[in-house]
Design a protein around this nucleic acid. Structure first.
Lengths: 247, 247
DNA sequence: CGGAGGGTTGATCATCCTCAATCGACGTGG
DNA sequence: CCACGTCGATTGAGGATGATCAACCCTCCG
């Protein structure tokens, strides 16, 4: 795995997540100050970024790749409680440790700030605190959406919900195109999907096969997914499309 | 139900949630400004505070009573996604509408601020924005804790988890005493517990009976609960007490 | 007295979990 | 080059947990 720091003396203005991350509202002088306290770090797929309970010396943003937040019980049952995509923030200013494990699901590049200087800067810079509040509210919405999935949806609906979330995110990143055929690669193993959805990996596998058999999705290999009809998928997810979104 | 405004010309310095609510860090001049834009509102048990999708004209704090956030699917399945206790904040500055229904579970008194003036004041008052960020991070932690409960715990563990949360909250409010016999009244119906836990009300009832038969809890009537051994309850919840907390 | 709301309990059934065998792709070492 | 082990995934058989449907209880209140 290339351990190159792809943006080593990285210039914030070239940053791919510049306008979505915690620094989104910052102006040039603020960006300059952030640049002076930031550094990049690479994590390989599977590697732990933070252990639950550890003191965190840094906070930062995911620049590329995917990381996950998970909680684990003593007997080994685990539940994923968050999926961190590029521009998502890691760490909580004002808190000592992390209550969850943070793990790199794919190779990950992070833009890190030492915690103390970042907190001090945040206290002086309402832009940053405000953006962080916005992002935290978004995460809260996502978590609560997920509580409905975990608590009330069937296995089939859970799978369809996860696929539709990933599909929509990919659509917004790439084409931005409207409702047509969507194609993407699953960034998660069956086991990670199970941990996300509160299922076993066998059930995930069975429901993926069932959705494929019923023509809701097409699979090439294990990861490459084609969605011929997004509306159909959303019906399967139980998220109704307001009754059919005529174009 | 008495519709008296128990604090009508309410003085913030007498407020029971003064040091825990969004105004916790405010000094006298700020409190004075808040007083000038606040008003109290009463809701009866069962009454809706905000409907999902509605525009919110106000934000505010729960002063007394309990409210719940719920999401509902088209076919009627519902999941509670938050429980609002005294001092908890309702509404999201910067957002138009609420993504969930907010309902009074018991009679509720709210301290409301009109949204616009509150937002303007927040922009000028870092104390408030900072406190709101803290509170939002706490809510996020609670939501994620709950995702583990919903996704991975058995019915019995779910009930025990809910009881232990309510018990601990009550303990922190009243005695603050350590591990002894805890007594409290359930603020939720069996149906509300079921909506919280992603169960049916029959399963809730059965598991309550089972925990009673096994001596984990004692019941007087349907709502009055005694916990003879908090450690035992937490074992049942799967939240291990670090391995047995010897005194 | 009768009805409504909340709660309990029982019988049965579906869903999803558990345990287990098997498969295919890939990489390593003989 | 092929045998082997590993890892992720699929599929099957059987069983447990919790949902569903239904009867019934208790208390409050008009």
């Amino acid at each position: 795995m290339s351990v190159q720091t792809q943006n080593a003396a990285g210039n914030c203005s070239d940053c791919p997540i510049r306008h979505r991350a915690v620094c989104a509202h910052c102006e040039k002088p603020e960006l300059n100050e952030l640049e002076s306290i930031k550094y990049y770090r690479n994590f390989e797929a599977g590697q732990s970024i933070i252990w639950s309970g550890d003191k965190m010396g840094f906070v930062g943003s995911v620049v590329s790749g995917i990381a996950s937040l998970t909680q684990t019980m003593e007997d080994g049952r685990t539940q994923m409680v968050g999926l961190l995509l590029p521009s998502d923030f890691v760490g909580r200013p004002g808190r000592e440790g992390s209550p969850y494990d943070v793990t790199a699901t794919t190779d990950v590049v992070m833009c890190c700030f030492r915690k103390k200087p970042f907190e001090e800067m945040m206290a002086r810079t309402p832009h940053i605190a405000h953006r962080l509040l916005e992002m935290t509210l978004d995460e809260l919405d996502a978590a609560r959406e997920w509580m409905l999935v975990l608590g009330r949806k069937t296995a089939r609906e859970k799978i369809a919900s996860l696929l539709s979330i990933i599909a929509r995110r990919d659509a917004s990143l790439s084409s931005g195109g409207p409702v047509g055929t969507l194609v993407f690669d699953l960034p998660l193993t069956r086991e990670a999907m199970a941990d996300y959805l509160g299922l076993t990996l066998e059930t995930v596998s069975r429901q993926m096969s069932a959705l494929k058999k019923d023509g809701v999705i097409q699979l090439e290999g294990k990861r490459h997914v084609t969605i011929p009809d997004m509306g159909r998928l959303m019906e399967e997810a139980g998220d109704d499309t307001d009754g059919g979104m005529l174009g």
